[in-house]
């Protein structure tokens, strides 16, 4: 299997890597670019822990080939805070105890940010359905939903 050279943009930075043709974008991010904030919980698109944005679309990076990143814009959890300034979602997840073990947190934050960009004022039900593909086993989701809504309210006010 001959490796493929890929030129892409990750969190705003021009990035190049080589990968095997069957290598997922998640493996590329974690193993080749050392961006281990995206997690592998299932490898089959059922848990959402590997959520990233590709060209403005929320996707599971385990269901994207690394080779498909050619010319694309990738955004991961590592790009969410601007230096020391946390995104309101990140701050509200800490303040509202919306994480326990934290393994699902990067994926949920990336997904929630995508939601609020599309729908700044979602209902609880809309948040719950949007995040249905992000499994969390610790929190029972209650504090996650509340933290997303608190962040949404702050962002609407800002």
């Amino acid at each position: 299997m001959k490796n493929i050279h890929v030129s892409t943009t990750v969190n705003g930075d021009p990035t190049e890597f080589i990968c095997a043709p069957d290598e997922s974008l998640l493996d590329v991010l974690r193993d080749r670019l050392r961006l281990t904030g995206s997690k592998e919980g299932c490898g089959s698109g059922d848990c959402g822990a590997c959520s990233v944005m590709v060209d403005g679309r929320l996707v599971c990076s385990c269901l994207v080939l690394g080779a498909e990143a050619e010319g694309a814009k990738i955004e991961t959890i590592e790009g969410m805070a601007k230096g020391d300034d946390l995104h309101p979602l990140q701050q509200h997840f800490i303040d509202g105890a919306a994480l326990q073990c934290g393994i699902c947190t990067p994926g949920i934050l990336v997904a929630a940010k995508a939601l609020l960009e599309k729908n700044p004022n979602p209902t609880d039900t809309e948040v719950r359905y949007w995040l249905a593909g992000n499994l969390c086993r610790c929190t029972g989701y209650d504090k996650i939903i509340k933290a997303v809504q608190a962040a949404a309210a702050e962002m609407r006010g800002a």
């Binding site: 929320l58 269901l63 249905a132």
Partner: peptide, 9 residues
């Protein structure tokens, strides 16, 4: 079909 993430693809 699938989650929001899957819908993206």
């Amino acid at each position: 079909i699938g989650s929001t993430q899957v819908q993206g693809r």
